[in-house]
């Protein structure tokens, strides 16, 4: 019988701590598949961020540095400059990358650091219990926006994939989702491209991954998955916003 659902070799065979229906697990898998595809696990260094994905080292068979909240792109810069022949990536949440870490991500991107960034946008601070994030949708109720995000007070949600694509240093920028099989296939392809850019030394590659956080959205996994399609994608369109190869 053909095995359809083998675990990628870059992933450890352990149960994750993610809640049922959380998309972090799916993106871990896609990242691992990309590493397997290029056979780079043994030369990859991960820069974990602070958020629900802080336990990167527990799930990937790779070396990992834990970065301070928001600083992973700076830490990755240090690692990549010290070991330019290695594959270096960050894996960051939306609070981490688009709030406290905006300065680091913009400057790493602008310098055109040859790293890959996986940015998981679940419109909330997952790990700390569902506070408002810079990507929280207008009107979305969170524990620090009890009346819903008020764009007059808090501004509108950041569109990081578009924003970064405007910087000359960025070689690849795309937004993906895993809410249905078609989107999973496209996400898989984009994440592979983002790693290939680094393997081929082509420059800074950015993936914004739209993700469900059923726990802090107060939804069951099915409803949360649907919200990605119904509410998030219309505001955060999927697609490739920059691809140096096509320029």
């Amino acid at each position: 019988m053909k095995q359809v659902f083998a675990k990628p070799a870059s992933l450890k065979d352990v149960q994750t701590h993610f809640c049922p229906g959380c998309h972090h697990g799916s993106f871990h898998r896609l990242v691992a598949e990309a590493m397997d595809r290029f056979g780079i696990a043994e030369q990859t260094i991960g820069c974990a961020s602070v958020g629900c994905s802080v336990f990167l080292y527990a799930y990937f068979n790779i070396d990992v540095v834990e970065s301070p909240h928001g600083r992973a792109p700076a830490v990755a810069t240090g690692v990549k400059r010290a070991r330019p022949d290695r594959i270096v990536f960050t894996y960051q949440g939306d609070g981490d990358l688009a709030a406290i870490g905006t300065s680091e991500i913009i400057h790493a991107a602008n310098r055109g650091e040859k790293i890959t960034v996986i940015f998981v946008n679940n419109t909330t601070y997952g790990m700390t219990g569902g506070q408002m994030a810079p990507t929280t949708m207008p009107g979305q109720i969170t524990s620090t926006s009890p009346e819903g995000r008020n764009v007059d007070n808090d501004g509108k949600p950041f569109k990081m994939a578009e924003l970064l694509s405007n910087l000359d240093g960025v070689a690849f920028s795309a937004r993906v989702a895993v809410n249905n099989p078609k989107n999973v296939m496209q996400a898989k392809k984009a994440i592979k491209t983002a790693f290939r850019y680094q393997v081929e030394n082509k420059g800074f590659a950015f993936i914004e991954a739209l993700a469900a956080c059923p726990t802090n959205w107060g939804m069951n996994p099915m409803a949360a998955n649907e919200r990605v399609g119904n509410e998030m994608i219309p505001y955060f369109p999927l697609g490739i916003f920059k691809n140096k190869e096509n320029l």
Binding site: G70, G95, Q131, S143, S145, P146
Partner: peptide
């Protein structure tokens, strides 16, 4: 800015302070 184990403080004030005409902002960082 949220951080455990003190997030109840901003959460409470995000509810109560605006009602009293005060300003509550969740900053981009500490």
């Amino acid at each position: 800015y949220p951080i455990t184990p003190q997030s109840d403080i901003p959460e409470y004030l995000s509810r109560e302070l605006p009602k009293r005409g005060g300003t509550f902002i969740q900053a981009e960082s500490e």
